[in-house]
Design a protein around this nucleic acid. Structure first.
Lengths: 309, 309
DNA sequence: GTGACGCATAAGTAACACTTATCTATACTC
DNA sequence: GAGTATAGATAAGTGTTACTTATGCGTCAC
């Protein structure tokens, strides 16, 4: 017998106690006993169960051996439950009933109408893409407990990797090692402080912080136009960036959806795309298919396009 | 390979619908899943369970097949529970916990310290043999629910045969097809009405009713002495018979224990045995050994002799 | 008694759960 | 980034198990 024991640093052997065998019953045996209780005879129970009578006889005998207790006693040419048998039959009913519940729940889960769905999204998505979708999903799947987490892309991906989320709506491009689906694409425009005569090169800029996926897109887009913005304010909050523009203090690059909603509505400097920010739905590559996520994505793509028109 | 049973072998689809297969899980699989949940990896769980890693891997895979749901998802080179897996693990814990309870209860039953003990006894036994015994038994085995039924021997034997009693204390001789144990033997004496000058042949008699086992003993005993009593009163209640004697109205044959207890105490006509009535404990021949019955009988035979001295 | 019935046992077979050996993929380390 | 250790999957072999049909034995009913 070769014992592959990894180099045990200390001789701490105590807490690894090997588990005791916990009653190796088969649910089928329990179902058999339940049938015997219900139909009152082995032969009839076997017929109802669609197995041969000896199969039932032996199965019950083994159950008795495993439990170490006589479950049936002879009554004429029949057999009837002993007290222990009745108790075990009660146990069987409980377990089988609970198992049926479980199966039902699993089927609901498979159908996408049960369980917990943990969705992460960036704030932009939470503002103008997903509220309607979440509402519609909750309406369509009342059995599903939807939990939302709003954060920036990198954090969401991190949480996704740590199994704290089932799906995350983040800024593209799609990261490696995940399954991603493009949900929508939104244009990023340059917004100039109203009434200012500054050139973009002269002005101050308010942008997303360094390292953000959106900021990377913006930097690249501006660089293509020869712009090296002097950034004097950074914020993750697009409402803050927008406000800086509204107050005439800064230039910025913002999603049209955010910049032009609310009052006063901003107008882009030129209808010129700085970049295209894609919103992607990301899942763990190894995660099993989830009908709830699929349904959620379907709702997003059905409704998601509309707000961008 | 899913086995779907669509129709019964016979073409006739009676209302005897064959049961649907109720989730053929093995408790061992559940224990395996529980171990994986607990120890966080297949390898470690296998080590703790004392089985090989492939065994666990295959077992879980089959569990997944049976449930039709993925229970584990890859997480790096490990695997972790999915939502369905967590739910099934919860189910496993419930079932295994309940099974442990069951096993414990069965062991108590085996040890004679649990369950229901249904005892039948004739009134004589309930009056002067068993009260102390029942009290002592209840004290010694508080976990056992003792239920008493007092009736005449034939009724008790009938109820025993119908599985309504576990043990019956009745008048001998031991019936066929049962397991009987003699508990004690009590003398039956003739009691004359005090102050009467009648001879037994002249007097009226008060006896147990025709057909009773005790009556048979008495008739035989009296016949041996040439007596053919004129019975004017029959009662199953020995107190009634005794009272008839006390009032000077009748002769009777009674167990000494009953006749001579209470006031006024009766004196037997002559210290001459009419018959010996044996009290036997009867059980069904096929009934499994029952530690509680054994303990009860032990108490009876230990204490039972005393009241007869 | 005779037949019907309920269950137990016997013998054969297919499925199953376990083992060891090996392979693949991931993570850690220098 | 290559080398190595680790987690798990897969393959092949083997003993056990759970089913089948055939048959035997005891009980109940006429």
């Amino acid at each position: 017998m070769t014992t592959l024991r990894t180099a045990a640093p200390d001789g701490v052997e105590a807490p690894e106690a090997i588990e005791a065998a916990p009653l190796n019953l088969h649910m089928q045996q329990l179902a058999y006993l339940q049938a015997v209780e219900r139909w009152g005879s082995l032969t009839e129970a076997a017929r109802r169960l669609g197995v041969s009578q000896p199969a039932l006889s032996q199965s019950i005998a083994q159950l008795e051996r495993r439990l170490g207790t006589q479950l049936l006693e002879r009554a004429g040419r029949r057999r009837r439950l002993t007290e222990a048998g009745a108790e075990v039959a009660r146990f069987a009913s409980e377990v089988l009933g609970r198992a049926a519940e479980l199966r039902e729940w699993l089927q609901e889960l498979e159908a996408g109408s049960a369980g917990v769905l943990r969705v992460g999204m960036i704030d932009a998505a939470s503002l103008y893409v997903l509220p309607e979708t979440v509402r519609a999903f909750r309406l369509a799947s009342p059995g599903v407990d939807v939990r939302l987490a709003v954060d920036r892309s990198a954090v969401l991906l991190e949480r996704l990797a740590r199994f704290e989320l089932d799906v995350a709506f983040v800024v593209g491009p799609p990261p490696e090692g995940y399954r991603s689906t493009e949900v929508l694409s939104e244009p990023l425009y340059v917004y100039a402080p109203p009434g200012s005569e500054e050139t973009p090169e002269q002005g101050d800029w308010a942008l997303y912080p360094q390292g953000r996926r959106t900021r990377l897109l913006i930097d690249e887009g501006l660089a293509l136009r020869g712009l090296r913005p002097r950034v004097t304010l950074e914020s993750d909050n697009p409402a803050v960036l927008r406000q800086m523009v509204v107050l005439g203090l800064c230039w910025s690059v913002l999603p049209a959806e955010i910049a032009e909603a609310g009052t006063p509505s901003l107008r882009p400097q030129r209808r010129e795309l700085v970049a295209e920010r894609t919103l992607i739905a990301v899942r763990r590559a190894q995660a099993p298919d989830d009908a709830r996520v699929a349904a959620f994505l379907r709702l997003v793509t059905e409704r998601g396009a509309a707000p961008l028109e």
